[in-house]
Nucleic acid binder design. Sequence first.
DNA 1: TTGAAAGCGCTACCAG
DNA 2: CTGGTAGCGCTTTCAA
Lengths: 328, 328
Amino acid sequence: MVTIKDVAKHARVSVATVSRVLNNNGYVGAETRKKVMTAIEELNYSPNEVARSLYKRGSRLIGLLLPDITNPFFPQLARGVEDEAGRHGFRVLLGNSDEDIEKEMDYIQTFVQNNVVGMITATNHVDYDMYQSLDLPLVLLDRTSSSYPAVYADGREGGRLAAETLIKKGAQRVTLVKGPAHVKPAVDRYRGAVEVLGEADVDFSVMSTTSYAFEEALNWAEELFKKFPETDGIIASNDIVGIAIIHEALKRGKNIPEELQIIGYDDIPQSRLSYPPLTTIRQPAYEMGRRAAELLIQRIGQPQQEHRSIQMPVELIERHTTRKDDQE
Amino acid sequence: MVTIKDVAKHARVSVATVSRVLNNNGYVGAETRKKVMTAIEELNYSPNEVARSLYKRGSRLIGLLLPDITNPFFPQLARGVEDEAGRHGFRVLLGNSDEDIEKEMDYIQTFVQNNVVGMITATNHVDYDMYQSLDLPLVLLDRTSSSYPAVYADGREGGRLAAETLIKKGAQRVTLVKGPAHVKPAVDRYRGAVEVLGEADVDFSVMSTTSYAFEEALNWAEELFKKFPETDGIIASNDIVGIAIIHEALKRGKNIPEELQIIGYDDIPQSRLSYPPLTTIRQPAYEMGRRAAELLIQRIGQPQQEHRSIQMPVELIERHTTRKDDQE
DNA sequence: TTGAAAGCGCTACCAG
DNA sequence: CTGGTAGCGCTTTCAA
């Protein structure tokens, strides 16, 4: 390993000087700078971030805690964060919490142990001590809190939009699939939908589910048709279960969208690939991740500043699991 | 921040002693140990990994470089790595290369700058200087090399299996979709398929594609049917394009699998959700990631040991885009 | 404009 | 069994 000392020796200056050119601060003579630069080149030196981090009490790492990147919504958030962070010279330490508080705490500890300069988290537990006692710039992603800045999409509005769409397009007996109760955004969108459905002139029923896992999605879909065979409009808890519902509906010979309309949530990349392509409520996942990183980095710069949250708009993406026009 | 010094003071011992109990080495009296333990508890102390890493010249971090976690195959690898690593007290620093050599080099630099103890990479460029001069335990994942241990699935065999399946099931005019030329596993499976197709008594054509991106998958599918409208058996370059092909086929009113059979590659979670559910060649992605981490950690323990690669079996997952039996 | 040296938090060696 | 201390690679005073 080549160290700053080697560079100093090679350039016949002190380590202090090398450090100064490295960090571009303090006075350095033009001559000297050049000498150092070439030494760096020749030795192919790159500074040890760990040593740097130790002294500065802060690395160039940011901690990112997500429920599960195996769920296609999250990789997009992650890429948004990573790309924006990278643009500012930061890298990400990734953790999957599986919505498990133990794992979450473990990761948080890891993050602080590694001197991350800030952290982005999609947690339902900001109120825990772990977070309270955290002395780090923090931004929530895909979650909200009054105590921290957050970047999230308007779930309530998304739920409303989904319901309104289905109603406008003539669904009469809608089934609302309720996501896991402990996942905040899931309940937001559920409430939004109920809000609209409750006021509207349609029958509706609710089916509760407890996970977003791929393996179970088909079971939920099956259960749904068993319980509500007469439904003609389904609001899925997310695109995964939306796609599973298409699958099951087709299997049962239902005509989509004539007989049965389906609307998903998230707009994960594969939703346009389903057949028929899934109508859905889009959350701008990549952009959300990007903004979260942006916000965090801002706060790293000026930690005192009063915090600001960003609510991203949701958007109806009309594809072919809903009808073209209002028709009964 | 509470440091080892604080703990020492609190427990009325020296930092050396605290360090010893922390690391469970050297002699420590039972009494003393207890005192230290309680001090640690009371102060809620956890050691600074950065300082530790600086001294030891090695962190508890492993670098993971993947092409793009936005492609559903990779999050599974990533989770496998992460979970296994976590089990051994390691965490992962994640980088997406986008198959871009620049980004790749950047991340490698970051990894060494942060003292990672080892690295797992899905690269096509092990032969580059960057890797050659790397003095770190390294294992390849989803890629091969003669110079490093690797965990990969048998692409050649997978390609063969796909082709054999289609032939056995009576396809007469098969179309082989060739993945991006610079992605090694893609060409392996392509070759395997050609091997079998060339020997068999069927017509076949090849269609080249240059990416796996979701956005383009539908375009490839469309192009395919334009160029080869008569095909009755398609070997997709991966499940994403397989699913896109189902989409396009259905849109064109083709009967699957009677008129047209399709076989994918990877067995990503969403493949069973398509309709009809996609027959595919499974790569045990999660397990591959897990094994790669296992291998790496082994090598971290004993770096000298001669290296061993692990070839994972591929497996035909018969779902409903291929026919039940051999029938013409 | 430069260099010497202290110190970031921790580990490991050496004395006692 | 325990403590003192050097030193990991770097940054940043402070003096020169």
